[in-house]
């Protein structure tokens, strides 16, 4: 863990490792690390252990999404957590203390901008992925979970509700009745159950998570058409899913 923390504050050395095929890295973020390798961009989110989404995170994320949205050189983006977990979601006490419609709308805007990107966005989810973090994953084009992942929108357990588009997207994926039950009960689900409810596209062994995400990123045709999402899932993820079953 100390190593990870050092890596964040010392992002330059981590990103500047010479790699075959050329590596580009952007720096100055404390809650994100972004680097591209062979045209695949890797976005590592948060600060361990829980990678909470703080106000600073959202600020940096918004900055990042604006900076990459016009990058014609990218082939795909993979979002993953820093360390064991994807992210435990928003930092509630900070959020409640600094709440405004404008800041929430801005968070929404940057998630939507991610969703509208021309290149495929893949969330590689290990460990915990809850609340706003799962909303971020829902705005991705593909969700691949390691078998130890736990996902959900537990906001109602804190007398709140999902606030960044998670409700609508969960309804689309899992159907109105399932989504309603999960959200009202504030349920969290293991990866396989989430897969059965169509909320994640593949469940894979933990140690293969990043490889499978990368394989998908490389395999997807260019230009990418999100309308064919289901076809790509069948073609590139189905086999992995069956291995898991």
């Amino acid at each position: 863990m100390t190593e990870n923390v050092l890596e964040i504050f010392n992002g330059k050395s981590a990103g500047a490792k010479p790699q075959a095929g050329g590596v580009a890295a952007s720096h100055g973020y404390q809650t994100l690390r972004w680097h591209t390798e062979n045209r695949v961009g890797w976005l590592r989110i948060g600060q361990p252990p829980s990678n909470q989404m703080t106000i600073q995170f959202f600020r940096e994320f918004s900055d990042w999404v604006d900076s990459v949205s016009d990058d014609a050189g990218l082939k795909a983006i993979i979002i993953h957590g820093n360390g064991r977990h994807f992210s435990s979601g928003a930092d509630l006490s900070e959020l409640l203390a600094n709440l405004s419609n404008e800041s929430m709308l801005e968070n929404y805007r940057c998630f939507q901008k991610l969703e509208k990107m021309n290149v495929p966005v893949i969330s590689a989810i290990g460990g915990v992925c809850l609340g706003s973090a799962f909303e971020l994953a829902l705005f991705s084009h593909f969700r691949i979970c390691s078998d130890d992942a736990v996902i959900g929108l537990p906001e109602t357990s804190f007398n709140l509700m999902p606030g960044i588009g998670g409700i609508g997207r969960m309804v689309t994926l899992a159907g109105k009745a399932r989504a309603l039950e999960l959200i009202l009960r504030g349920m969290t689900l293991p990866a396989t159950e989430a897969g059965n409810l169509n909320m994640v596209d593949a469940v894979v062994p933990k140690r293969e998570l990043k490889d499978i995400a990368l394989t998908l990123a490389i395999s997807l045709p260019e230009p990418f058409h999100v309308e064919f999402r289901q076809v790509y899932i069948e073609k590139y993820l189905r086999r992995k899913k069956q291995v898991q079953d």
Partner: peptide, 27 residues
Amino acid sequence: VMTAIRNSILLGREEAAAGEVRLFCEL
């Protein structure tokens, strides 16, 4: 939550988003 679900089905995404943010901020 029910209102947000209704919005997500009845309204366009932008409108539903604005509604959801308002509902969230109230809670």
